[in-house]
Design a protein around this nucleic acid. Structure first.
Lengths: 337, 337
DNA sequence: CACGCCATTTACATCGATGTAATCGTATGG
DNA sequence: CCATACGATTACATCGATGTAAATGGCGTG
């Protein structure tokens, strides 16, 4: 025989299906006696609600989706764990998905994955364009992480990327570095994370009265170790080589450090290296890596709260909200004593 | 107005709801003409099937769950990506969940997470006990990864852990190492991964006519970098210190390497270090880490296939299957020239 | 021309849970 | 003693998609 249905429980307990439903949903007007009988029946039969039936009737799944570019990037894995912890605490379930940073996948996320599996979506976009958000269906609540987006198009949580990059750059300047390269930087693009951090870097240089060396701002295809390694190699071969690498995530920094090591440069004697994200690996690498630590838990908390509030509210709701989470620079061996 | 339903599409296309359903499900006896009209209507209205309705009717969700201990452990993140790629290729969706290695969570996974969100579960258990599987509901297909389990209780995919550890140990022996420690080893427990790998290690030592130095087999609380670091420190302070560390995953190895570095030991001159899993970090660390590379894609493929086959078959099906995926030792700087 | 075959299409019931509104029974107040 | 209120419970319709079985209609064959 299949799983017991609500009707089976009702029969066993000698009540109606609706009464069982009432017990399940903690409806207040149920006598202690029937409540006990129903509970007993549920136990005996091993009954569990069928989510499909409930969702069909209620129109909600109790699940939210979290879509990140790549779980191999430790930052996203760590962030995901915080989001999952938070949603679980609030009684929801998280459906975790990878987009690979591809626009088509991110669009699918914005649209609810071709199916209403989820009540809402938290997306960490890479390739999404502003116009992709313009015509989205606002009935599906959406919270964006990290990337800057069109104001008013969707709720958004991020750290102050400009300030963070400025602080990191100022730290390098304070150590006497003058040729600071940006690995993963972006001079022109839209106001995405790379661009914002590059802006912070530029602010710091301007503040110190230094010229902006465009040739030291180097985009990368992905934000993985191999890309950091390749970038570092290229930069160190410049006629006027850099004396510091501001890497826009920790994987780039770790790859850069490795490449520098292979080519005989020593960190931090010859070159300083700084990363972003404070992933666990930066605390155990040789050398340990100076990095900007975003308040991951804070980001997760805010994102989940924003999303669940929107879902709770039901209707398309008010204007989009922008929230800023904290960050701090953690100085380690790669730019320390 | 809410989302369009199948009925709206039917109306717009001038056909019955069932015909729309037939088009959606590629039923063969639909004329090209109506098919086109329905497709048009779907496009115009922006219709998407409601999963809840479909699932309620079909009894399947098209989702499987993958439950791993910890996404921070890169091995699991990499494995998860392979599983997700594979299920997507086969038209399913993966619900990714963390258990934290806690038994209660793993039990919840075995039981389908208190809700039939999923058609089946792939679980990488740590704390699960044999008896937890004995009385499980075999209507929910389950595939176990990695850990050894009671024969006949559930399908199972793993590498040959004994052989893998033997080969890694033999590699160290061939390099002249004689005091080989096992970080994360287990001398007595059930036949879990730690125990199996320790067995392989013991086989290699016996094969070389060496005694089994129990004091060199060191369990760890978790398999993270910090645990590897602590273990390495402890081992190097033994009166008769080890000359090689066989770490049962790469994170332990990376942590050990860092601790050795801090304490002034050099790898591989003073001590060899070997890990398991071949996570990306081992290819970029300083030094790079020798490791046993499991065929992650193979594991993912087999697990997904086994699971989908069971789901397809419907009934509780035949006896449990055990499959073995490949592995190979990749020698890098931490135990190389 | 009648018949049967087959491709195509449809009406209807159904999956399981829950919202709505109605019913039943008892306590309370006038 | 009746009217009213209210707590507890229930019958029924409904959410959206699809399986079943039957209807429809065109076509070839005897």
């Amino acid at each position: 025989m299949g799983r017991p249905r609500i009707k089976d429980v009702a029969e066993y307990a000698g009540v109606s299906a609706k009464t069982v439903s009432n017990v399940l949903n903690d409806y207040e007007h149920v006598s202690e006696q029937t409540r006990a009988a129903v509970r007993e029946a549920i136990d005996v039969l091993g009954y569990r609600v069928n989510i499909a039936g409930r969702q069909l009737r209620r129109g909600r799944t109790g699940m939210i989706a979290l879509a990140v570019p790549d779980l191999d990037i430790a930052y996203f894995a760590e962030l995901a764990r915080h989001v999952m912890a938070e949603t679980e605490r609030l009684g929801s379930t998280t459906l975790l998905l990878e987009t690979g940073g591809r626009r088509e996948k991110e669009l699918a996320a914005v649209r609810g994955f071709d199916a209403q599996f989820t009540d809402g979506v938290i997306l960490s976009p890479l390739a999404l364009l502003p116009r992709d958000l313009a015509d989205r269906d606002t009935r599906l609540p959406l919270v964006l992480l990290g990337e800057c987006n069109l104001p008013g198009s969707a709720d958004h949580v991020a750290i102050d990327n400009v300030a963070a990059a400025r602080e990191a750059t100022e730290h390098l300047l304070a150590r006497g570095r003058r040729r600071i390269a940006v690995v993963g930087g972006d001079l022109r693009g839209t106001l995405n994370t790379s661009r914002l951090r590059t802006l912070g870097y530029q602010e710091a240089l301007s503040g110190a009265g230094l010229a902006l060396p465009d040739e030291l701002v180097l985009p990368v295809p992905e934000f993985r170790r191999a890309d950091g390694a390749a970038a570092a190699r290229g930069l160190m071969r410049l006629p006027d080589r850099p004396d510091a690498l501001l890497c826009l995530n920790d994987h780039l920094a770790l790859g850069a450090v490795r490449a520098l090591h292979e080519d005989g440069w020593s960190v931090p004697e010859d070159v300083d290296v700084v990363g972003f994200d404070d992933i666990e690996a930066t605390r155990f690498s040789i050398p340990t890596i100076t990095t900007v630590a975003p308040d991951k838990r804070g980001i997760a908390r805010r994102a989940v709260r924003l999303l669940l509030d929107r879902i709770e509210a039901g209707a398309p709701g008010g204007p989009a909200v922008d929230e800023t989470a904290g960050h701090r620079l953690i100085v380690r061996e790669s730019s320390g004593a």
